Amino acid sequence: MNEQTAGRHARRGLNRRGFLVAAGATAVGAALATTLPERADATARPFRVPIEDVRHTRTWMAWPDSTSIWGGRLGGVQADIALIARTIARYEPVVLCANPGGAARARELCGPTVTVLTSIPVDDCWMRDTGPVFRVDGAGGLDAVGLNFNGWGNKQAHARDARVAERIAAWADVPFTHADVVGEGGGVEQDGAGTLMATRSSWVNRNRNPGMSERRITDALCDAYGASKVIWFDGVYGQDITDDHVDATSRFLAPGEALVQMPLRSDTDAYARDARQQFAVLSRSTTASGRAIEALRLQGPDYERIRSTDRGFLASYANFYLCNDAVISARFGDRRADEAARATLTRLYPDRVIEQLDIDRLGTGGGGIHCVTQQQPVA
């Protein structure tokens, strides 16, 4: 490993969103990744979580206001959340949950196009993980499932965030149920046609689901999402607060088509190995219906060329958000990689506007645009 490469890995570290751990509770080698035998056909379940490129009624977000979590970074993170909210609001309605004490600042930064709601209190901004997972039945019905958020395995205070999912469902006036598993929305990707993908590290983990086998967790996720198959990756245990959420690396584009953000050839850290494994597993996997999955590559940036020098920074182009008529993505200052990511997303979504945002302050928390948004699909 040459000096430049060694410097890249030392600066990147292995602790995405790691500084947040100190704000909450103390943190409480997998086998080769395989897919499990398929369960009963998903058509037996009337409700399912659709793929994310369907039309949305609105986007849900949350306003961070805790200095105990963010410290001196709070103002910058708030500015990034406001930028994301304002950008999405150009394409679809945005409802942002804020504590009463932070609502004035949220309204000031977000402007009149974003609805700020004070009746649903929050601890932090990660709506993908705390919000409800909305499901449709194809006949005009809509309901929601909660994934029993526990602060990524009791690593952060979450008394308010643990109730966000059910409170949003009540506000939206849709039926709500709790899943039979503990986890987060960023830990699952769905193709809307019966297939899920997830990392074992963020589900088959005693900090979320002690004593539960992979089979039981598979069944619970399939029940919650209206699916019949989970493609499992090993993931990365204990090196970031999420235990390696799949939505930072791999995304479904359509049934039978997925996208994986790939590291530089010289990258050899745990997350680089994880990304390569995810690509390899997807390339030999099939969907719930038996269709071979085509895995496409999205090149990640060079951490020596991005703007941020923060050790826990997450530079994920794959963590984009699909809203009505647009793709909301990030850029990190590696101009060549930023432009290549834009070109890839333009090719994949030719009928959508590609918006690339500077969200470096949010990235220091180890998250991105997909992490702080949750879609409510049109029923």
Rank of each mutant, 00 (worst) to 15 (best):
G192F: 09
D173W: 00
S213L: 11
A220F: 05
W171P: 00
N207C: 15
V181S: 06
A179W: 05
G141W: 05
A227N: 06
D223H: 01
G140P: 05
I231W: 08
H178Q: 12
V164F: 14
F149V: 01
V188A: 09
P175D: 08
I231L: 12
S202F: 11
F176C: 03
W171G: 00
L147C: 01
D180M: 01
Q190P: 07
W152V: 03
H178Y: 12
R206T: 12
F233D: 02
V145Q: 02
F233V: 02
I217L: 13
R160F: 15
I168E: 09
A159C: 06
Q190D: 14
R200T: 03
I168C: 13
G183D: 08
E184M: 07
A193V: 03
S202C: 15
R163E: 14
N150Q: 05
L196K: 02
N205W: 04
G226L: 07
D161G: 04
R216K: 14
R215S: 13
R208G: 06
D180G: 03
M212V: 07
D143F: 04
P175K: 06
R215M: 10
G141V: 04
W171H: 15
Q156I: 15
T199N: 15
A198P: 01
S213G: 09
R215I: 07
V188M: 10
L147K: 00
G151W: 02
P210A: 15
D191P: 03
A159N: 09
W232S: 02
W152C: 02
G183R: 05
V188E: 05
E184W: 11
A159K: 09
A157G: 01
R216D: 15
L142C: 10
Q190N: 15
G138H: 13
S228Q: 14
D173P: 00
G211A: 11
A169R: 06
V145I: 13
